[in-house]
Amino acid sequence: MSDPLGLGDIGPARFESVPAVREGLANVGYLADEGIAGVVYLADRLAKPVLVEGPAGTGKTQLAKSVADLTGSRLIRLQCYEGLDESKALYEWNYRKQLLRIQAGNVSDEEEARAGDHHAPTWAELEEDIFSEEFLLTRPLLEAIRATEPVVLLVDEVDRVELETEALLLEVLSEYQVSIPELGTVRATTLPMVFLTSNNTRELSEALKRRCLYLHIDYPDIDRERAIIRHRVPGITDELADQVARIVRSLRTIELRKLPSVSETLDWARTLVVLGITTIDAEAAKDSLHILLKYQSDIERAAKELLTASAE
């Protein structure tokens, strides 16, 4: 196999095959479909980051956590927000410590001068000293690159940073290295698996998209949703899980401001179990809709559509 990225050895494969990924994820409690498992497998083989998009609450962040669980890696998380900059994402010099070091140098020098063998540190020596690794504060991106053990890097909600900050990520994502002017270039020894999640509040740059594998996680189909409910909600009966999944599917066909996501479905199922409801009738559904839907107008609409008559 040629080595187009110049990455050297991309390390041993983390996963054997696509079905193995799927099974492994299921073991740590994440029920992936064919597409998700396939992309995770490829991300490892091609040593590429994965850009995960999709509606809120469909398990984008959870995927990264589960992969970390599965591979036994440490999860390093960079939560993006507006105004995130280099010093918070990459690295920062420990300014206070540097200052202390310079002052401490002066003090010890004075003592030495009294003792007789005066040797003032030259500027070059001092500079080399205070810009060494001892004074470097690593932030998530650099930490993931420098880690010697296997890590999973999660860059959460990457669409929240400005376009300019996004460019910071490019070097890390494509070359797995960080350039620090005073120190030189830090390269990754073990390649991290990288997941970026986006809620699609703005279009990401082409350059970023090109470097990633793209994975769109949509609402699961009914069989998978049923399986997820049964898996994640302890003590639920098959019958109730089935009913929950079917009602949620019907709700998603209605035009609502915010469709119920998987996490809300799970909350609802848990609530029903706690309340001791075994079959959902119209009353029970109406009383607990507010867990599933987050807008009053949505709740009214859904109640009307679901409970009055069959669809148009």
Binding site: Q243, R246, I247, S250, D281, A282, L306, L307, S310, A311
Partner: peptide
């Protein structure tokens, strides 16, 4: 019930 009917309808659709 209306709810069941709606669910069935969606299923078949």
């Amino acid at each position: 019930s209306a709810l069941d009917e709606r669910l069935l309808g969606d299923e078949y659709r």
